[in-house]
Write a protein that binds this DNA or RNA. Structure first.
Lengths: 334, 334
DNA sequence: CTGTTAGCGCATTCAG
DNA sequence: CTGAATGCGCTAACAG
């Protein structure tokens, strides 16, 4: 493990450190051809690699951003991460990803860790449990973008799906296909997370618009491991639902498992639509009708918003919510 | 964006910087209660956050490792990454993930970038295209661990599946179930990547052990987008295979798609086993028999090997290949 | 127990 | 066109 420094390169090339520095930063304006070549040669011979850490310290810029997802088990999270990474790599930013695991304490720890590491900005899927921390970040004008969840009363740019529209798309499709007993199943609602709440709201609104009755029995938000039990209860009703909207990919997996275990045919006995695209939607038997989020654009937008904040900090601190439109991909499960 | 420094904390608490530094590094041994409290208070009042970058520069340690995967589209890659991240977060390391996209040039760029960023070590799924670079890293004793692929002639600890065993497990299962016309389909072999080559070798050996004939027609390695065409050719034979081993998850997806498009029933008309576990194996119709890699242990092992190298650099530079045993998960596709 | 001194490797004035 | 000087924020001896 060696460590060639700029000083050694300078000595080797018979120039001063600052000349080397200028060379590295492509300020060739007033540099003689000969000097340039000597430096190039010295760098090659010594195998010199600039030290980013030292540069970061000096420049107060690490060219690194942090991404904290609430729960990496969601396909959506991983897809967004990939989109962010793509954009960042193009712009020569590095990305450090952390998974808060739906735990506000972990989220807090990661935010502090990443700030201590002097990341230039943060994209977070907020758990919602650290309002004070978020607030202080806003106050200090730390570049911050939220994804997927709205934290009310806070001025932070937020990239999010039009969740109500997503649920409506699904409900309308169910109704078009002639289904009447329609339900929605999603993961736990106890934390009032935006997507889940909005999807339920959208579901209810869409049903009302069509004058369809809404049965509480058919509207369920439960922790993942309780979903199967919830489905059992629904199926124990005298009139179980004919169609179910899966609020997200995790809920979808549970419903699929339940259907398989209980030999419920899809779409014969149960019409199914999932919000969130899943890798196997196309090849499943039957292929799964899903409501797809424009993940790549959303990730890209989040990164771009962050870059803008990093590169020209807006003193006004204005922010807005950027909604993206979902799209129904009709396949055969409904 | 403020930036409270240690100096300000020191001034605020009426002590010197080094005392604060000692406090932060929990060297309380010879510190008076009062001083300690004053420092604590100053930190709280000022909202001081230590600057990792400065510390890293001084200590020549960033507590960050880099992971470069050859191709992040493989489930295996993402699973290993998750395992590595879990282990690292426990040990307070950060992880920067890069995707070389099977491109040696990208790989090279990322290796250099990460080393410039002074990561303490690197876990890489080598593309195999940068032997010289790998060699110079070894020579400089830069902490390095390879995953999934062996680079011959290089002394680097490597974590890898016993790929031959994986293929044998599958072949044996096919044979037990009475299949005779058995094939293997995997992604392109032109780069001689370890897993693919070894899986084919394992396949052939297992067939030979059972005195089964090996038809070249049934042994195919093709780029992902050509697999369907390859399958078409296999099915145009007078005797198409009755059983196919999918060499990895990408190949499996293609086979599944082809089967669906051509209404080939599984396992009725085609028995199928995939190497690599996929998220939907359990809920697919039929549930998919797979050969599973012990991903978590492999990721953990890779991280631990790297930590050991980082923490006590072994002057001998010895290294070995760490093989992990695959496991057949029998479901219903064979 | 606490303060002083010296860098880590680099970028940036500001004189030559 | 080039070099000397200064400091980013922190740690690490070494003195008190």
């Amino acid at each position: 493990m060696k460590k060639v420094t700029m000083a050694e390169v300078a000595k080797h090339a018979n120039v001063s450190k600052s000349t080397v520095s200028q060379y590295l930063n492509k300020r060739y304006d007033y540099m003689s051809k000969k000097t340039k070549q000597r430096i190039e040669q010295a760098i090659r011979e010594l195998g010199y690699q600039p030290n980013f850490v030292a540069r970061s310290l000096k420049q107060k810029k690490t060219s690194t951003i942090g991404v904290i997802v609430a729960n990496i088990l969601h396909t959506f999270s991983t897809q967004i991460i990939r989109a962010i990474e793509d954009v960042c790599h193009e712009s020569d930013y590095h990305v450090i990803v952390c998974n808060a695991d739906d735990d506000p304490d972990k989220e807090k720890k990661y935010i502090q860790m990443l700030m201590a590491k002097q990341v230039d900005g943060l994209i977070v899927f907020p758990t919602g449990g650290n309002i004070n921390l978020y607030q202080s970040m806003v106050k200090e004008k730390f570049p911050l973008v939220f994804v997927d969840r709205i934290v009310s009363g806070l001025s932070v740019d937020t990239v999010i799906l039009d969740n109500e529209a997503a649920a409506k798309l699904a409900v309308n499709h169910f109704i078009e296909k002639g289904y009447e007993r329609i339900g929605i199943v999603t993961t736990s609602l106890i934390h009032n997370l935006t997507p889940r709440v909005e999807r339920i709201t959208g579901f209810i609104k869409a049903m009302e618009e069509h004058q369809m009755p809404i049965r509480d029995d058919y509207v369920r938000g439960m922790e993942v491991h309780l979903i199967k039990e919830g489905l059992r209860e629904m199926y124990a009703l005298d009139q179980p639902p004919q169609a179910i909207l899966a609020g997200n990919d995790l809920a979808l997996m549970e419903i699929l498992t339940y259907a398989k275990e209980n030999k419920i045919t899809i779409p014969g006995q149960l019409a199914l639509i999932g919000i969130d695209e899943v890798s196997f939607a196309n090849i499943y038997n039957p292929p799964l009708t899903t409501v797809k989020q424009p993940v790549f654009q959303m990730g890209k937008k989040a990164a771009e918003l962050l870059f803008r904040k990093i590169e020209n900090p807006d003193p006004s601190g204005e922010s807005r919510v950027h909604r993206f439109e979902p799209e129904l991909i009709e396949r055969e499960s409904c």
